[in-house]
Every structure is written in structure tokens, then in C-alpha cells.
């Protein structure tokens, strides 16, 4: 069964029927938002059943659209959280990627500004490495990007999509070794992106991110995970009651290769490790349960089939 990431938007009336339907079909609800009279569901659903969900949702004014980034967590890295980059550029990009289903976190570096003085500390490096992909938003000058980018990428293991003011070709020429994705003409700016050509550049970012993540999915498919992250999320929310008391919008954040569980590691690390998935198989058997560098959260990295010889 192939699960496809989709967004369902519809009225709040009888929306639980849609949730039940998706779950009965074997799909997973990743995130649910209720905004006034509207419900937005981000879900993974079986490819063959999309038409059925659309049919059931139609009388409830529901609409289902593909969102390629559902189930991914993306870091948007900016040199700092100062007025030079915020709210425009950084927030515009982060927000736009979010519309396609990704969970984006903004990482404002403590000392990422400047050409010679730019630095990346170990905490920032580790936090970025906990994501599926990092979007770097740098400035307008080739000279600066060329000099500072090697420092800012040091130790980053996740794919990087580099955005900057110079054209894409110029970015490709100055970055060595190459990164996974480039988007030019989107550097530092101080105004809101609302004109058509600016929006189309944001589309380019989403396209590039999708392309890079698709490539990563293909690679992961060669040695699939022992359990799908969405399924593991379902199991945790069913078996660990405390997760329902967490107030953050996504108490369990789904990533491509794991989960971020927003419970304190000291108390719940062992609990999660011992949680039974199926007939004597525990989470600890299939995944590494690690302390996250983000607050005191837990990071679960699911091991591939080749390591566990188990597939659930």
C-alpha cells in the first residue's frame, strides 16, 4: 500500500467522519488544525483511496490536495533573528514551505552574520542535523556567500538547499563541494513577498526542497525503515497517555526517518524504549531513542530493515 501525503480542507461539521475514514483505510493523520469553522488535516492516505475520500468529503465542503512535504521537518536557517532578515525573507519562506505540509522550524544563528566573523556553534549544528533538510537563507553578495558558507555548513549532515541573492548559476559556481539544492534571486529583502514574480521564487524554493526530499526518499526506499514514522506516531499516541497533555501544536512531529516526541527525555526515554509495538517487539528494538538538542525533547531515529531484520 503506497501512502501519499495530502491536505484535506473542509468544514468542521462531521469532520470526524473523514478522520475515521482515513484511519479505517489505513492512513495516518499527521496534524489537525481547527481554524474557526474550517478543519485542515495533513495526512498520509492510501493512493487508491484518494477519490473515495474526495467523494465522502464533497458534501462536507471538503477538498483534498496533494502536499508533497507532509511528514517532513525542515530547518530554515538564517544568519540571525534581527530585523535584517525578519520578518521578510525568513518568515516568508518558512511560512510558504509550511503551506505544502512541512513542519518548519526557524533556526536563527547566534553569530551567523558577517563574512569573516560568521560562526556555527555545536548546539546549532546538532539542532539542524535533527531535521530532514536545511534551507539556508543567505544574503545578496556572492563574495560573502562564498566566504561564509563553508563555515555555516561545517558538520551539517542533512541535505542543504541554499538560497541567496545571486542567480542560481552563480551560486552553483561558488559553492564547493556542491550542496543538494540551489535557489537564486532570493536573498535579503525588506518587503513582503506579494508580487507574482516574488511568489514564483518562493515556489522555486518549494520545488527545489521537494526535489531534494524526493531524491532522499528514493534512496531510503532501497533500504526501507523497519516501521513507518507515521505508524510509530500512532502507536505512541495510543500507548503513552502523557503525550495528550502536551500543549504544543504537534506533540509528535513526524520526520522522514523518525519522530520528535515532545516529552522530557529523562522521564520518558526508557518508557518509550520499552513501549511494545507488536508481539514482543519494542520501540527500542526498531529505533534509537535519543535526547534531542531541542529543549528536553526526545528524538527517535528509526533503524533501517538491514539493521533490524524486522519490518512492521
Amino acid at each position: 500500500m503506497i501512502l501519499v501525503p495530502v491536505t484535506y480542507k473542509g468544514g468542521i461539521y462531521r469532520h470526524d467522519e473523514i478522520i475515521d475514514l482515513i484511519e479505517d483505510l489505513g492512513g495516518y493523520i499527521i496534524q489537525k488544525h481547527i481554524i474557526a469553522q474550517e478543519v485542515v488535516l495533513q495526512a498520509l492516505v492510501p493512493k487508491d483511496d484518494i477519490e473515495l475520500i474526495r467523494k465522502v468529503g464533497k458534501p462536507l465542503t471538503g477538498d483534498i490536495t496533494p502536499s508533497p512535504l507532509v511528514g517532513t521537518e525542515i530547518a530554515v536557517v538564517t544568519p540571525s533573528l534581527e530585523i535584517h532578515h525578519l520578518p521578510h525573507a525568513s518568515c516568508d519562506v518558512a511560512e510558504y514551505i509550511r503551506r505544502y505540509g512541512a513542519k518548519t522550524n526557524m533556526v536563527g544563528l547566534a553569530r551567523g552574520f558577517g563574512k569573516r566573523i560568521a560562526q556555527l556553534n555545536d548546539e546549532e549544528r546538532d539542532v539542524i542535523n535533527e531535521h530532514d533538510l536545511a534551507v539556508y537563507l543567505l544574503g545578496d553578495f556572492e563574495t560573502c556567500i562564498e566566504q561564509k558558507f563553508p563555515v555555516l555548513r561545517r558538520g551539517i549532515m542533512v541535505p542543504i538547499v541554499l538560497c541567496g541573492g545571486p542567480p542560481t548559476e552563480a551560486l552553483k559556481a561558488i559553492i564547493d563541494p556542491p550542496v543538494e539544492g540551489y535557489v537564486g534571486n532570493i536573498g535579503r529583502f525588506m518587503h513582503r513577498t506579494k508580487e507574482a514574480d516574488e511568489i514564483s521564487r518562493l515556489d522555486d524554493v518549494v520545488e527545489e526542497v521537494t526535489r531534494v526530499l524526493d531524491k532522499r526518499r528514493e534512496e531510503m526506499a532501497k533500504d526501507p525503515l523497519s516501521i513507518s514514522p507515521a505508524r510509530l506516531m500512532d502507536i505512541i499516541s495510543e500507548k503513552v497517555d502523557e503525550i495528550h497533555e502536551v500543549l504544543s501544536p504537534t506533540p509528535i512531529t513526524v520526520q522522514m526517518g523518525g519522530l520528535r516526541v515532545k516529552l522530557p527525555y529523562d522521564t520518558f526515554g526508557t518508557v518509550l524504549r520499552k513501549t511494545v509495538i507488536d508481539e514482543g517487539v519494542t520501540i527500542g528494538d526498531l529505533a534509537d531513542v535519543l535526547p534531542s538538542r531541542m529543549r528536553d525533547y526526545i528524538l527517535i531515529r528509526i533503524k533501517p530493515f538491514s539493521e533490524t531484520n524486522l519490518m512492521i
Partner: peptide, 16 residues
């Protein structure tokens, strides 16, 4: 000296 960068900064100065 960088034409593209100069154009961006022209817009930035204008907006600010």
C-alpha cells in the same frame, strides 16, 4: 562592484 547585489540594496534602501 557586484551589480546584482547593488540592485537589491537599492530596493532595500528604498523600502526601509
Amino acid at each position: 562592484p557586484e551589480k546584482a547585489g547593488g540592485d537589491y540594496y537599492r530596493r532595500i534602501a528604498d523600502v526601509v
